[in-house]
Each structure stands twice: as structure tokens, then as C-alpha cells.
Design a protein around this nucleic acid. Structure first.
Lengths: 221, 221
DNA sequence: GAGGCCTCTCAGCGGACTCTCAGCCCCCGG
DNA sequence: CCGGGGGCTGAGAGTCCGCTGAGAGGCCTC
């Protein structure tokens, strides 16, 4: 656990110990990186506001070193840095201060249980795969080249595979949060994507949920 | 919302409804626990001083049952029980009476938005299940595709499963609050739904309560 | 400045979805 | 046993939504 506010650190430390966890406590970012590199923990609780290195930097450094211990982030407040930021950086969960102690325990248990290194550097849906780091899309072993917009759309759909996402959500995340044009663009790009990833393979990974939006079939269609 | 002071309850109920929330009101701790266990709410507003079971007990019981619906607590006054107590027990936010109505709305919105990713948003009635996030309906393991209107109706019935809901209520919640057309639409859509979720499975999850309305059988029919 | 790629707009089309309507059935009360 | 009212049903009209092909404009490269 990485937390510089001593009172809070102490309270939570005691509480977690009572709940059966073995807790190690450090108070700044540098020590956090060092400790996490040297030891192997089940889970790391990481505050954002820290002396020397802030929580985001710590997380970045750890992930860059290939340390994939689950991380639960503590944020001081909704806003500025929000949930999305934390998740994008590789945090596995987050809590906003002040948080409920029972929720913290529950989330930690969930993270530990989830355990396994199922971190998706490569998103897959059936025989369709998208390598986020390399920006590569393959289906059935064959590489598919996409334009930036097409890629952005596909990545969004793949990250939410199984969920129905509305055209508005898509516009806000793949286009611009302040986009106010015709949602028809999305339809057009869905068509482009289908032409590249579905039609040649006689599948339909992207489903239309009429009146709601689209849904990436987790099985690839 | 759990609140025993009738006047306050009524005012807040009206205000929240105007603000676009769908509000269910109970007046004591026992009913609160029961309602929260049976239904799935976005957020619970919980007074501390309550007949039968006080707010702290209610919260404790809910969390013990694995119900992680966000809870906003209403406290009469700072002191004795203070913020820390509420947070320790798993409340997600709190307000001190008297509170500003706008603040309440803002906090509720924040709680709903924050909504944990690991909360099961799947409504079930027997072997019938509705996954709100994925917008997926299944019966007996088989997926059922619904039109937006059909889905809206089913979701409403499932959220109130066990209760008899009138056609007017349905019209106001699934159609438009200002709807003034023929309530026969509801009958027509109930028929569509039955054709999809009941007939093929030789069940009747949607019961007709003559002269009153409809009722979703919690056991699935 | 010409060509090519990418992005986005537009308008027509076809089908899915919504809702209305009128007649029928069935429950219930007299 | 009969009448009335509430709910059920099938057909159909109108609307809305998503799909599609064509093309304009912007940007980059050569």
C-alpha cells in the first residue's frame, strides 16, 4: 500500500490487517517502485497524490518494467484525472476518496481472486485479433490494414465486446467528446469496417442492435 | 429511498421524480432491506433514524448479503454518529440534514456514474434473465432478440417483478411521461413480449391482473 | 499542382418497428 | 343465462432507422 497521508494510511493498514491481509506500507512513489520491483505482492493499493513520483508515474514505471501486479488506485476526487485515465494506464480498479472501507476490501478480494495475468495486450473476438501495442489487426491469420479512424472504431468495439454501445458513445470516444454532427458517420465507418473484417471472411462480428447501437460479438460472429 | 418523515419523503420524492429519477419509497428499515434485496436499484438514499432497523443496521445487512448498490446516507446532524462511521460501514456518500436539494441530485448522479464495474446488473425471474449492461435477454440459456420498445417494457416489468403495475404506470415509464394515447399499445406490446419470451417456452411469466394491470412473476411463470 | 488516401456529407431506399383500429373473446356481475 | 367491459388479436398504415453509393473537400506525398 502506497499512501502518504499518515492518518488514513494507519486506519486502512489496521483495517486491512484485521481483515486478514498482510500489509506493507510505503509513503512515497520512489519507495513504491522499488518495493514493487523487489517483492511480489498480490495487489497494490496506490494513491495518486504522492511525494517524489505521483501514482500515475509509478504505475507507468511498473508496467514498463513488466510488473503486472494488479493495482487499485485511490483518487482524491472525481474530475481532472478520472476513472478512464486510471484504467488507460493499466490500473485494474480504482476508488474515489473518501471511500467505504468495506468496498475497498471487497474490491481487493475481487482483484486477488481474478489474479491471473489475463491482461489483454491483444484483444480477441473469435479468430479476430487486435494487438493494441503494435496496432495490428488480424483475422484468421491474415493481416488487415485499417485507416486510423477505422482502427479507433474497431478498438473501441473490441474493448467493449459483448456490450451494446450507442452511436453517441462511439462518437464521444472515437471521434470527439464534443462531436455534434450527424451520427451517420458511425454507420458509414461501421460499413467500412465490415467490408474489411467481416465480408471477406463471411462473418459478421459487428452486430447492429436496432434502435440502440452496435455490439461486437465476442465469438467473432 | 428510505425515509420515515413523511413530509420530507414526499418532497424529495417529487423533486427526484421531476429530476428524471424513478423513485421507490419505503418508510422503515425492514422494508428497506427487503426491497433492496429483491430489486436492483442504481442507488439507495438511506436515512439513519428509522423505525424497526436504523440506517446503520440496514447498510450492514445489505453489505453482508453482498448487495453493493451505492448508498447515500442522510444524517440528522454531525456528531455521535459521524461521517467516519458511515464510511466505515460501506456508505458511499452522506449528507447532513438539512441539505440542499440540488446537492442531493448532484451527489446521486455522481454515485450512479461512478457505478462499480463488478456489480451484477442482471435481472432474473426464474430462468429468464435480462442483462442491463449488455442489453441481452436470455431464457433457458437461449438468447432472445427484442425491439427497443419490447426491451423497455420487459426491463420495466423485471425491475418491478412481483409487483402489479398499471398500464398507466407503464405508459409513463416506458413510453412518455406525457403519453395520452390509447393504453391498448401496452396490451399489444405485452402480446409481442409473450410471443417471444413465454409461448416458445410454454410458460407465462407475464401475468394479467384484470382491472389492475400486469405482473412479472418472480419465478418466471 | 497532381494524384491518392482519408474523412465526412448527403439523399434515396428498403425494411423494421411502432402504433391504430375494429372485431372478438372471455371473465364477471346481475 | 345474458350483457357489459376489459383484455386479446390480426391486419395494416405510417414512420423511423440504418444501409448504401456517390462524391466533395482536406491533407499528404511526390
Amino acid at each position: 500500500m502506497v499512501e502518504d497521508e499518515l492518518r488514513l494510511a494507519d486506519t486502512v493498514h489496521r483495517g486491512l490487517t484485521d481483515a486478514g491481509f498482510v500489509v506493507e506500507l510505503v509513503h512515497d512513489g520512489e519507495n513504491a517502485v522499488w518495493a514493487a520491483t523487489e517483492h511480489s505482492y498480490d495487489v497494490i493499493v496506490l494513491d495518486i497524490m504522492l511525494p517524489k513520483l505521483n501514482g500515475y508515474r509509478v504505475l507507468e514505471l511498473l508496467r514498463a518494467r513488466g510488473i503486472w501486479t494488479p493495482v487499485l488506485m485511490l483518487t482524491a476526487k472525481d474530475g481532472e484525472y478520472d476513472q478512464t485515465d486510471a484504467f488507460d494506464l493499466g490500473a485494474d480498479d480504482y476508488l474515489t476518496k473518501p471511500f467505504s472501507f468495506l468496498v475497498l476490501v471487497a474490491r481487493l478480494r475481487a482483484l486477488i481472486r481474478r489474479g491471473g495475468p489475463e491482461r489483454p495486450v491483444v484483444l480477441t473476438a473469435g479468430d479476430l485479433s487486435l494487438d493494441v501495442a503494435r496496432r495490428r489487426v488480424e483475422r484468421n491469420g491474415r493481416e488487415i490494414t485499417l485507416t486510423p479512424r477505422e482502427y479507433g472504431l474497431l478498438e473501441f468495439l473490441m474493448r467493449h465486446r459483448g456490450d451494446t454501445v450507442s452511436k453517441t458513445e462511439i462518437l464521444q470516444n472515437v471521434w470527439d467528446p464534443a462531436f455534434d454532427g450527424d451520427p451517420n458517420v458511425v454507420e458509414v465507418y461501421v460499413r467500412y469496417l465490415r467490408k474489411k473484417i467481416d465480408t471477406p471472411f463471411a462473418r459478421h462480428a459487428i452486430e447492429t442492435i436496432r434502435g440502440m447501437g452496435y455490439r461486437m460479438n465476442p465469438e467473432g460472429g
